[in-house]
Every structure is written in structure tokens, then in C-alpha cells.
């Protein structure tokens, strides 16, 4: 059993997004975080000071740990933002803003 089967999901056709340039499949409706988790990816941010990996923590938009850069826009909460076809998702380094 997987969660899609459990809930009897019949999603529309998958589309493609990229994560750090690598193509991954995304189901319609899923957030960026859900798409990345489904692809086995759990970290997409390197912290400002320690450069430590981070991903989803609270899952509901409160903790801001899952910040990610989507289509050049930094500091998007992956757990809130829906993935859209062709999204260019990139690991966010530091503040997410270029120096």
C-alpha cells in the first residue's frame, strides 16, 4: 500500500519539473515539497551559517525550514507552493539572494 492507493487517488497526467537541473516527475496538485519527497529528496536548503541541509520540518508553513528557490524566486516555502509544469526548483544557499 502507498498513500496514493490508500486514498484511491487517480491523479491527472504527471508533468516534469527540475531539481538542481535534474528532471523529476510531479503529480498535479502536489506542493513542491511533496514532489521532492515523492522523488526521494528530503533536503533542498543549505543554512546561512553552517551550510547544513534542511527540508520539510513543520509541513504547514510555520517553521520556514523548507525554504527553496523556485524559478529564481528565493525563500519560497516548499510545503505551501504548488509545483507547476516546468518549475526550475533549486537548492537554496544561504539567504537565497545573490551577493
Amino acid at each position: 500500500m502507498n498513500p496514493l492507493e490508500l486514498a484511491g487517488a487517480r491523479p491527472g497526467p504527471a508533468f516534469t519539473v527540475t531539481f538542481d537541473g535534474r528532471r523529476i516527475e510531479a503529480l498535479p496538485g502536489r506542493t513542491v515539497a511533496a514532489v521532492l519527497w515523492a522523488a526521494g529528496i528530503t533536503s533542498w536548503r543549505a543554512t546561512r551559517d553552517g551550510g547544513r541541509p534542511r527540508g520539510v520540518f513543520c509541513g504547514i508553513g510555520v517553521c520556514f525550514d523548507c525554504l527553496v528557490t523556485v524559478n529564481g524566486r528565493p525563500n519560497q516555502r516548499a510545503c505551501l507552493v504548488p509545483a507547476r509544469p516546468g518549475d526550475d526548483i533549486r537548492t537554496q544557499e544561504g539567504t537565497g539572494h545573490a551577493h
Binding site: N75, T95, H97, A98, H99
Partner: peptide, 13 residues
């Protein structure tokens, strides 16, 4: 005398 300060998200210098 009351003073408000606004603080932004962290940015590079």
C-alpha cells in the same frame, strides 16, 4: 518617545 523599528528578512550585505 515611542519609536518603531522595522526588521527585514536576512540579506547578503
Amino acid at each position: 518617545r515611542r519609536g518603531f523599528v522595522l526588521v527585514t528578512e536576512p540579506l547578503p550585505p
